[in-house]
Amino acid sequence: MDFETVDTDTLLSGRSEWLDPELAETFSQHPLDAIETEYPHYVRSVDSPDGVERPKNNHPVFYGCYDWHSAVHSHWALLRQLRVFESHPAESEIKQRIDARFTPENIEREIEYFEANRTFERPYGWAWLLHLASELTLWDDDHADEWKSIIEPLEREIIALIESEFLSQEQPLRVGTHENSAFALHCILDYARTTSNESLESAVVETAIEFFAQDRNYPVEYEPLGWDFLSPTLTEADLMRRVYDEDEFRTWIDGFLPDITTKPYDTLLEPVHAETDPDEEVAIHLVGLNLSKAWSLAGLATTLDGHRYAEAFERSAKKHAERGLSQAFTDNYAGSHWLSSFALYLLTRNEGGIAPNAS
């Protein structure tokens, strides 16, 4: 699909009604393939010469997609598609795949791994697992109710780890990759509000204010910092628009940002040119960066309606969306195992579960 021909209001609507069955099938193709692809797989430190246990043994649910967090958000993407797309063309296959994975025995094995490895996938994978749980909470469907019941023990385990191993940290990480604290906090906050977990919501809001309330004149001109797939600047702002009321947020962002309409700060509003040279496959992160910047900019434009930056944010969101979506459906596995999730997040961001109002 040529996304450049879609008008701005439609492209940035965050609604799915304009997305046709052909595109819905496209959204499902790569996640369905990737969740079954056990190798190649990312292995962290090797602690002994005894060999590395195969991913499927440790993670009978989330073993594909190169790494655990990508497997989680690929499952999220499949579940979200079933919820938001009416009569999804791949509905039967998606349900069959998830039925085979979501069993009490498989979930128990996932929990056992976290009990022995308490910081595994902190915080990025944990954040996506809660997004997945949110999706099942939102979906009024018998399958969703059954799957929600099955994964609840893992959901509880992740919440406990978030409280003990993440919210207890003394300072945030302001990076453009998996360790970004603001992205994890916004996902956890969205989950807490979707599931009406008021104690977790309060803890996240308190942490976000402690971490970011005093940030001023952010060095936006340094971005991207490397092979980023998140903008530290925009991800932080995307979190704080969830935390503050409208007046508080406008005051905060006026102090947080330098004048982004002037050089060198206006580079924040420009999409990144993403090379997809197979010798530098990590550069595909920059495709994801354009997508995540697009959803952050679109959310900020809506929140700041009437503000001096609102129109600039909206124009920039459309440019980032067009650039990111034009490259998101690559067959290169370095991107295909995860980019569909980012594209779906952008195009369905107003279909529930993402940036819900405070409870």
Score class of each variant (00 low, 15 high):
Phe102Glu: 06
Leu189Ala: 09
Glu53Gly: 09
Phe212Gly: 09
Asp254Tyr: 03
Gln214Glu: 15
Arg122Met: 02
Glu155Phe: 07
Asn332Lys: 14
Glu210Asn: 13
Tyr42Thr: 06
Leu200Arg: 10
Ser92Asp: 13
Arg101Asn: 01
Phe313Gly: 07
Glu93Gln: 15
Trp295Arg: 10
Arg101Thr: 01
Pro271Asp: 05
Leu11Ser: 11
Asp266Tyr: 02
Thr267Asp: 02
His285Val: 09
Pro104His: 14
Thr262Trp: 03
Pro123Met: 01
Thr119Gly: 02
Arg101His: 02
Phe62Met: 05
Ile94Trp: 08
His307Phe: 05
Gly64Tyr: 07
Tyr265Ala: 08
Ala77Pro: 11
Val243Gln: 04
Asn117Met: 08
Lys56Arg: 07
Asn357Arg: 14
Leu291Asn: 07
Thr267Asn: 04
Tyr63Thr: 06
Ile151Phe: 05
Pro104Ser: 13
Asp228Thr: 01
Thr251Ala: 13
Gly14Ala: 05
Leu11Asp: 08
Glu17Ser: 13
Ile151Pro: 03
Arg122Trp: 01
Leu289Cys: 06
Val84Pro: 01
Trp126Val: 00
Thr103Val: 05
Phe212Leu: 06
Thr267Tyr: 02
Phe85Thr: 03
Glu135Ser: 08
Pro172Phe: 10
Trp18His: 14
Thr207Gln: 10
Arg323Lys: 15
Lys56Asn: 02
Leu23Glu: 12
Glu86Gln: 11
